[in-house]
Design a protein around this nucleic acid. Sequence first.
DNA 1: ACCCGTCAGCGACAATTGTCACAAAGAAGC
DNA 2: GCTTCTTTGTGACAATTGTCGCTGACGGGT
Lengths: 207, 207
Amino acid sequence: MTTNIQSLHFEPKLVEEIEKVGILKKLEAGVELMRPGMPVRSIPIILSGSLRIMRQDEEGKETFLYFLTKGDTCAMSLTCCAANRPSSVRAVAEDATELMLVPVEKLDYWMSIFPSWKTFVFQAYQRRFEDLLEAVDSLAFQRMDERIWRLLKKKAALQEKRYVYATHQELADELNTSREVVTRLLKKLEGMGKIKTHRNRIELMLK
Amino acid sequence: MTTNIQSLHFEPKLVEEIEKVGILKKLEAGVELMRPGMPVRSIPIILSGSLRIMRQDEEGKETFLYFLTKGDTCAMSLTCCAANRPSSVRAVAEDATELMLVPVEKLDYWMSIFPSWKTFVFQAYQRRFEDLLEAVDSLAFQRMDERIWRLLKKKAALQEKRYVYATHQELADELNTSREVVTRLLKKLEGMGKIKTHRNRIELMLK
DNA sequence: ACCCGTCAGCGACAATTGTCACAAAGAAGC
DNA sequence: GCTTCTTTGTGACAATTGTCGCTGACGGGT
């Protein structure tokens, strides 16, 4: 599952640079990479696997924002680094994940000399904006059953499988609702023929 | 109320450039500057007044995202321009507003030669990220009474007054709820001594 | 097999929000 | 004054979501 940095459309010289100063990090599924308040010292570039980005409130309640996958980087890291501010989100490995950590100092310098890095940074901003708007849409316009269904589809797509391995409690936490509500609505989705529920696992009936 | 571009921390040469190519535009309160699907041909820099940025779903339901005020620019414009994509949000003048429209073509060029422009663009991204996260917080973690109360405080702060001129229906539209709910919760806030309601106008009892 | 901890299912009820119907109050014109 | 339109108020009810209590199912270990 190892992806190397070469496959990410960077120019050869930049690839060289990244490999020189970047630190490869491997995360097992479920490991927390970043939490609100943590200082951000490096920019992660995801090589394989995926990160789940969550927003927390003061009491620790959470809500899902978006996933980062291969080739993505965290726009929050970019803004936090630039402003020298702590993280405002939580990042958790959704699967086993590999990423390259690039020190903050390079951000600006590379932007000025590597066009592909500049493109990369701007695309990151743009994609994360879209992702955040999608999160807003979900919160503002969709009911909980629809939100669960979409989350399941996204999770399944990440793995390219029709199974999602998660407990009802975990899904409830990601959507800032309660376990009972998730159970109830999963039953409803099952009744509609969209899924089948198993212990620790949900099967999506796509197509 | 006219603010000129000089007060925005740009270097003199850039100010000159902006004045040369920028188009000054004045909007009356309530006028729509941008709607979802519209092509974005220029980047607006707000000189005075404020813009209300809203997200819409397919059926036209809306939810408030954030306000832009003096010195701000629309990060959506930046991303949309860069990717040559239509707007994904709606922008409406909250008050009488003046803005400078800068043609897209300059975005990149100025970034490479004017440090203050680069800073400006990155700060815009950063601020709008924070604003969007605040919008997510509001949607995910707060009940409707709290959301109304916060919206009122923001609106009052924009004008630096203790009155907000709006009907219950308008507030309902901005929060994607119904007029009756707004009426009900405003009565509740009034009972708590936080506001006084009048026709077309709400008085905030701050301090 | 049995125990035990985790996970899921379910019924009852509460809280919040959404919807409908209708009335009253205020503003503006005649 | 009267009429009309807009805005606000309110009661009743529905839908959705949140919470509590309890039950049973499943799986891993012994």
